[in-house]
Each structure stands twice: as structure tokens, then as C-alpha cells.
């Protein structure tokens, strides 16, 4: 798909600039130019597409859809996890969304399926994984994120943990909001604006991430880390997740790094588990959620999601 661009970059670096093939500097510059343009283009397409779908599912509508589903059925969890993908999730919306959902009578477990899927499966990560590893890895990321969200939500629902939600959640009244249906033009214009905003926010991280990746690409030989974090080390995934949870970074900055780690010999499942831990669980989000969840429920939430990510990591190390 991007062969034409590789051709142009090679011309620029080796013929026009006259750099010598095979030297680390040339390899790093070639890699940087190629990846930056490829990834930014893919991001534009994917962010635009997801934002467009999103205009059909404002939170009020999601809330109505989920509130109409029957408790205890898989369908409600699946719907919640799917709707989580198209949510513009920013951790500051976690609390109002949580209260809004619980207030509408959506079961706690279904609410969690949504709250887990929203930050875990995001369009930026999806676009970058597709750009750097291809369709298969992007699909695996999507499916495993959804499965973790669905299963975790079902477990939290079965445990009957409503008593560990802060009492204040049940006393807040959510006002009615009129929902106006946007026109096609408005949807397009909104998607366009949002894509620009997201790119404006992440482009620097993408460049820094690819830059570090490019340096590693030039100087660290493929497979150099295999003996430490390859598939034969049973603790690698565990360490990756434990290290990733307290880190808080944009998927945009982590993925180019993940790509290079994997090239240097870190097993793909381990690298993906690291990325999911960084993006799905973060300390700022936990501090916000503490306002609506008692410590025990918060701890169970973090434990179940971490466990899910660890299991996914091992699964991919076995499959890929």
C-alpha cells in the first residue's frame, strides 16, 4: 500500500542526498521519513472514519440503548463494549459517564464493560497498529480489547458489587438533554474538526516515538533483546504489564516504541500487553474514578483488567 512512498524516500535518502546504503544514519533517516508519513496518513483516515461513526452515538443515545437492554445477558455487555470503541474517551469524562449510566439503571457490570472498552480500544492505537504491523495485529488488538471489556464487565456484574459504589452516585439527578440530530454536512464538518484537533495534539508524540524508534532501528540490531524479553521468558508479560500500569502515555507515543521493541526481539504479546497497560489503566483515571468507586471496587476493577491484559499477552505469545 505504501510501496510508492518507500520508493520516493529511498530516492531522497540514497540518491538525492547521496547517503550510503546500510549505514545506521541512513537507515534511521530512511525509516523516520517513511514511517512518519505513512502513520500520519493512516491516522487521518482512521480518526476521521471513527469520528464520523461517533456522530451517530452521542452519550445520551448510548445510555438509552444500554438502558433498554436486559440485565445478565451477554448482549448488553457486547453492545457496551462496542459502543466503547466509538467513544471519544477522555479520562475526565469517566466520572460523569459512570454516574449518568448508573442513574439510567444500566447495570454496574455493563457500565464497566463500557468504561473498560472506551480507553482500551482507541482509534489512534488502531490506526497506528494497522500502519506498523498490518491488519492481523490491529484486528487482534481490537478483538482482545473487546473480549477483556466484555468478560471483565460480566465478572464485575456477577460479583454484585453495587454496595461498593459511593452513595453519592445514587442521589445525583441527571437533567434531561434535548438531542438534535445533525445533518450529513454537520457530521462531516465535526469529524474534520475533531481529526485536526487530535492530530494537533498527538503529532509531536508520534514524531518523538518514531524518532526513538528510528534511532533503535539504526543502531540496535534485530533480535538484540530476544534473550531478555523473548517468548521464552515466562515473566516478560507480567513485568511489562506491571511496568505499564503506572505509566500514562498517549497510544500515539507508545506504539512506535512497541514496534521497535518487537523488532529487537521482544515477543509481540509482551509488547502489546505493555501498550494496553499503558493506555487502558492510568493513575490519573483511577484518582478520578475513586470519587465514585470505593477503594475495594476500584482495586477489583484494576486487578481484573490487569489480569485480562496479562492473559492476552500470553495468548499472543503462544499464537503469533
Amino acid at each position: 500500500m505504501f510501496g510508492w512512498w518507500q520508493y520516493i524516500v529511498d530516492l531522497l535518502v540514497y540518491d538525492l542526498a547521496g547517503m550510503e546504503r546500510g549505514t545506521p544514519v541512513a537507515a534511521a533517516i530512511d525509516f523516520f521519513l517513511f514511517d512518519t508519513v505513512k502513520i500520519l496518513l493512516l491516522l487521518i483516515v482512521i480518526i476521521f472514519a471513527i469520528t464520523f461513526i461517533r456522530t451517530f452515538f452521542p452519550p445520551e443515545r448510548t445510555r438509552r440503548i444500554l438502558a433498554a437492554k436486559k440485565e445478565g445477558l451477554w448482549g448488553a455487555h457486547v453492545a457496551a463494549a462496542l459502543l466503547g470503541i466509538v467513544t471519544p474517551f477522555c479520562s475526565c469524562s469517566a466520572v460523569p459517564l459512570f454516574i449518568g449510566f448508573v442513574e439510567a439503571g444500566i447495570p454496574l457490570g455493563v457500565t464497566f464493560s463500557y468504561l473498560i472498552a472506551a480507553p482500551m480500544v482507541n482509534e489512534v492505537a488502531l490506526g497506528m497498529l494497522y500502519g506498523m504491523f498490518g491488519f492481523k495485529v490491529a484486528l487482534i488488538y481490537l478483538v482482545s480489547g473487546e473480549v477483556i471489556a466484555i468478560v471483565s464487565g460480566i465478572i464485575i456484574g456477577r460479583l454484585g458489587l453495587e454496595k461498593w459504589v459511593e452513595e453519592c452516585v445514587y442521589t445525583i439527578k441527571v437533567g434531561a438533554q434535548e438531542v438534535t440530530v445533525p445533518t450529513f454536512r454537520e457530521r462531516i464538518s465535526e469529524s474534520y474538526q475533531f481529526t485536526l484537533q487530535v492530530l494537533g495534539k498527538i503529532w509531536l508524540y508520534v514524531l518523538i516515538g518514531i524518532g526513538i524508534g528510528a534511532l533503535m532501528h539504526g543502531w540496535i540490531p534485530a533480535g538484540a533483546l530476544a534473550q531478555y524479553a523473548g517468548r521464552d521468558n515466562p515473566f516478560a508479560v507480567l513485568v511489562a504489564v506491571v511496568a505499564g500500569v503506572p505509566l500514562y502515555a498517549n497510544a500515539a507515543g507508545v506504539i512506535p516504541l512497541v514496534a521497535e521493541l518487537s523488532r529487537a526481539g521482544v515477543a509481540m504479546g509482551t509488547a502489546l500487553a505493555f501498550m494496553m497497560a499503558v493506555t487502558a489503566l492510568s493513575i490519573p483515571e483511577m484518582i478520578l474514578l475513586r470519587r465514585v468507586l470505593k477503594p475495594k471496587l476500584l482495586a477489583i476493577f484494576v486487578a481484573i483488567v490487569s489480569l485480562g491484559i496479562i492473559m492476552t499477552g500470553y495468548l499472543f505469545n503462544t499464537l503469533l
Binding site: 452519550p59 445520551e60 460523569p96 459517564l97 437533567g175
Partner: peptide, 26 residues
């Protein structure tokens, strides 16, 4: 958070003009 939710807003930020919600979540 209670005041925000009283406008029916679940996705911040939002803009209210003379008591009428105009924009939410963007």
C-alpha cells in the same frame, strides 16, 4: 460534577448560553 450532570451533560466540556445547552463533548 452534580451541577454538570444537572444539565444532562455526560461528556465534557460543554457550553451553556443563558441556561440552554449548546455544545457538549467537543
Amino acid at each position: 460534577i452534580n451541577d454538570i450532570l444537572s444539565f444532562g451533560v455526560m461528556m465534557t466540556p460543554a457550553l451553556v448560553v443563558d441556561g440552554v445547552l449548546k455544545v457538549a463533548g467537543k
